[in-house]
């Protein structure tokens, strides 16, 4: 059965000298070590992270804004003692920003310093010289696969790039090598853990999805959100954290234009701590709702539904 081990197979294909060590023992191990770095996961986050390590596959993390997609990659890097390399995507991102670029300025300086007299030989020397690694600016993708220290690669908000750039990412994620015309092929030194995040603004290509494990990160349930608050907001009481998590759950059940995210929950919690509250009443909630909700119409709706006159229970 070991012949089927996907990690071994990949390592062989890439000609790696040794298999990367397994980073996690079990989903539980994932959970505990992430928690040590203040990231509270759940069964599915822990399972998929564990599986990605075993299969040496990238994870595509999707879900609403502010639910801890980016934070997951950071916490994984911290918990395995790896350096996080981040490629922030945006519309118009291209090879020269994602992969590598020649350092023209430095090349020019070198040419001026060298000043060849004009013989063909001298020129070709110089050319060899200025297209050496020394003049190469490595960008996140190239850096991640050529690094010799442990790294985690985060390709953040991949739904923002154009289809062409997506194809480039896909190529790197399946070949783990880069061919640079002036230099030759650069091979991977390791198979890093890779996270891609998406806010789902665009349909990603089937090919990219096939290549990745998929992890949907939704809003946490009350217990997990309470624990997130407790770990991220110093000085807060368990009772208050629990109440905050409950209010946020109730808000998310309303039909709002934009439901509060975990980051907004945390902002709210910090505010209440600064105000010295031990519990939330109607009045505090009314005064601070704008921290959780960004649209006026949402605030109005929440005020009416959650804080309005109470209807007798059926």
């Amino acid at each position: 059965m070991s012949a089927l081990d996907p990690r071994e197979e990949l390592a062989q294909r890439l000609g790696l000298l040794h298999l990367p060590p397994l980073r996690f023992d079990s989903p539980r191990d994932v959970r505990e070590r992430l928690a040590q770095h203040d990231y509270l996961s759940d069964d599915s986050i822990a399972s998929v992270t564990f599986l990605a390590d075993r299969l040496a596959k990238p994870i595509l993390v999707e879900g609403p804004a502010g639910t801890g997609k980016t934070a997951l990659a950071k916490a994984v890097a911290d918990s395995i003692g790896a350096r996080l390399i981040r490629l922030q995507c945006y519309e118009g991102l291209d090879e020269s920003k994602a992969l590598y670029e020649w350092n023209y300025r430095k090349q020019l300086l070198r040419i001026q310093a060298g000043r060849p007299e004009g013989s063909a030989e001298e020129w070709s020397h110089l050319e060899e010289d200025i297209f050496a690694e020394e003049f190469l600016l490595t960008r996140p993708l190239l850096e991640a696969i050529t690094a010799t220290d442990p790294v985690v690669l985060l390709i953040d908000e991949v739904d923002r790039v154009e289809l062409e750039t997506e194809a480039l990412l896909l190529e790197i994620l399946s070949e783990y090598q880069v061919s640079i015309p002036e230099l030759g092929t650069v091979k991977a030194q390791q198979i890093p853990m890779v996270f891609l995040t998406s806010n789902n603004t665009r349909e990603l290509s089937e090919a990219l999805k096939r290549r990745c494990l998929y992890l949907y990160v939704g809003y946490p349930d009350v217990e997990r959100e309470r624990d997130i608050i407790l770990s991220r907001v110093p000085g807060i009481s368990t009772a208050l954290a629990e109440q905050i998590a409950q209010v946020v759950r109730s808000l998310r059940m309303l039909d709002l234009k934009k439901a509060p995210s975990v980051s907004e929950t945390l902002d709210w919690a910090r505010t209440l701590v600064v105000l010295g509250r031990e519990e939330i009443g109607e009045a505090d909630a009314t005064a601070t709702l704008h921290i959780l909700l960004k649209y006026q119409s949402d605030i109005e709706r929440a005020t009416k539904e959650l804080l309005g006159r109470s209807k007798p229970v059926a």
């Binding site: 409950q246 759950r249 009443g281 109607e282 804080l307 229970v313």
Partner: peptide
């Protein structure tokens, strides 16, 4: 408290 009641109900 209206809010507290609502939370209990939810």
């Amino acid at each position: 408290d209206v809010l507290v009641q609502r939370l209990a109900r939810d």
